[in-house]
Every structure is written in C-alpha cells, then in structure tokens.
C-alpha cells in the first residue's frame, strides 16, 4: 500500500564552535515526498556545551560558562515526482553564553536549497527494498551576518555546495541508511584586513576548508512511525587548530562525531500532521563544542494537486 505521504524530518547538527549550522535532516534521510505533496515543517532546536576541544585538548572556559544556541527553522519540501523532491529551508539562530561579558548574537542564518533524486528503488522478495538517492544542495547566508565573533557568531558565512549519496536498505519494518556527502565551502570575507592562522595573512578573505559528513542511521520505519538511532561524523578537510587560549576562527579544523535518536509520529486521526523530535550528543571532536541538543517540530503535508 502506498502511503498518502511520506514524512520528512528536520534536525540540527553541530558543525563547529559557533551556532549549530542549520542542517536540514531530510536532505540526509532516505525519505521522499510523494508527487504534488508539499510538506511544511517548523521546528525548534537547542544545543549547548560547556566543554570544547581546543585542537585536541578538551577544556572548559570560565569566561564562556555554558554556550547555547537555539534555532527556529522553517522548511518546505515539495514532491515534483515520487522520485524527485525539492527543499528550501531557513533558520533563525540565537546564541548566548552563561558567563563572561561576551554578547550573544541572533539573526536569520543560511538559506538552503536541495534537490533530491532517487534513481534506484528495487524490491527483493516480499519485504526487502533497496533505494539509492542523490542529493545536490546549495546554501548561502541570508544576509551579511557577523562571522568574526566566534563562538557567538550565528553561522560560518560560507556558500556551501553539497553533493550527497544515500543508500537505504529496508527489511520489513527495519531499515539501515548510509550516506556520505561532500561540502564545498566557499571562502569567507571577514571585516578585518589581516588575521593569523598558522601564519599572518594580509587579506580579508579567509580560505575555508571543505568538509565531509558521513552518517549511518538505523531503526524502525512504517508510514506512521519512524524511530531511529544515528551516528554521524563531520570533518573538515584542512583548516587549523585553535592555539592555546586563542579565540576560535571560522576556518578552524572542525571535526565531530555525534550520536542521536530521532522519532516521527503521524497522528492516526489527522494523518497530514506529524510530530518530530530528536536528541543528540557529541562524543568526540576537534575545535568544536561537546554539544548536547534536542529538537522538536511539527510537519504538515498537503496535496497541492488535489487542492487545485
């Protein structure tokens, strides 16, 4: 039986010491909106850390106390066809420190656009299914926000071009999804004319290392309930370590390994409405905070063709 709609999800993942880079989870999952279905999603997420890795050294910082970032995200996901979706998202991010004198910052972060295509879907026997997805994405700062006040900056200020490949295997109601993506991150312009990385650089342009995100998810999936656990690893290719007692910087090396749980539930009485929640924790990292976070959101799906 083909369900009326397929759920989408949003979550926040943390890349870096700054505010969690808004990360549209549904570009990384193995789910698609059906043809002419539009999903409108809204979510709130919160993550915080009181310890971080300065290079490989784990430390606290009494002048930051607990760093926290909260975010409100709006997202649209439209099914052009059953095997071709487009998505747009934009988060509003606020950052705060609990100690010290540093101000928090807030504002609209990066506008993201994704195209998700499913070239392969094969069914084996009565209960096995293998799908392959390809995702292309582009995100850009919605405005010229302040990137040079890490860790309280709301984002990295880079234009990111993403390519992702997802393989999903489903056996009855259990599934496993593996994905890998490469993030081409454009250089960033800062407000200063010189800065020090591992040497003095006389420019306002900052060379940004590219990044990769690798993820494995597994769990239970029906058209109405999804419960899953995941582990992901994000890393930059290049960058440099924060020096002893220095401030973090936008082009630092930023690596992290995170684990999380995520669930979606669609109301039997009102199948267009879904509830969505997730929680995660950073296990290991480099130049990132050891974040603990959660999100909660709602999903509402409508069939655009039908309403015409």
């Amino acid at each position: 039986m083909k369900p009326l709609f397929k759920p989408i999800a949003i979550a926040m993942a943390c890349l870096g010491l700054s505010a969690p880079t808004a990360h549209a989870q549904n570009e990384a999952d193995a789910l698609m909106m059906g043809k002419h279905n539009l999903c409108i999603a809204a979510g709130y997420s919160y993550s915080s850390w009181d310890r971080y890795w300065e290079g490989s050294l784990k430390r606290d910082n009494a002048n930051i106390g607990t760093f926290s970032a909260s975010s409100i995200m709006a997202m649209l996901n439209y099914g052009i066809r059953d095997d071709l979706n487009i998505m747009v998202s934009l988060p509003y991010v606020s950052t705060k420190t609990s100690a010290g004198t540093l101000s928090g910052l807030n504002g609209l972060q990066d506008l993201s656009f994704y195209v998700k295509y499913r070239p392969v879907r094969k069914t084996f026997g009565s209960s096995q299914k293998l799908s392959v997805f390809a995702v292309a994405g582009y995100s850009a700062p919605s405005h010229n926000y302040n990137v040079d006040l890490m860790p309280v900056s709301i984002g990295m200020g880079s234009n990111v071009t993403t390519g992702r490949l997802i393989v999903d295997y489903q056996l009855s109601k259990f599934f496993a999804t593996a994905s890998g993506s490469y993030l081409y991150r454009s250089n960033v312009e800062i407000d200063r004319t010189a800065y020090y990385t591992t040497r003095q650089i006389n420019s306002n342009q900052v060379q940004m290392p590219n990044a990769g995100v690798y993820q494995f998810r597994t769990g239970y999936r029906t058209p109405y309930i999804i419960a899953e656990a995941y582990v992901d690893h994000m890393r930059t290719y290049g960058g440099f370590d924060i020096r002893r007692n220095d401030m973090p910087f936008v082009s630092n090396t930023m690596n992290s390994t995170n684990v999380g749980f995520e669930g979606k539930y669609y109301l039997p009485q009102l199948r267009a409405l879904g509830l969505h929640a997730a929680a995660w924790r950073t296990l290991e990292g480099r130049n990132v905070g050891q974040a603990t976070g959660f999100m909660a959101g709602v999903l509402y799906t409508l069939n655009v063709a039908k309403s015409k």
Binding site: I80, R81, L84, V115, Y117, A136, Y138, T161, Y184, S186, N187, T193, I201, N202, S203, Q205, V206, Q207, M208
Partner: peptide, 29 residues
Amino acid sequence: MKKLFTYASLILLASSIAACNKDIKEYNE
C-alpha cells in the same frame, strides 16, 4: 522533469568547479 534535474545538477557542478580555486590573494603581493 528528468532534464530539469540534469540541468540543475550541471549548473551546480559547474558553479562549484568554477569557484574551486580558493587561493587567497594578499594585498601585499
């Protein structure tokens, strides 16, 4: 529709390759 996707992918790919040289030019050069 498939064409649209192909074109979109090509544009994205082309724009990212065009921007691939990330070397910084310093003003004192």
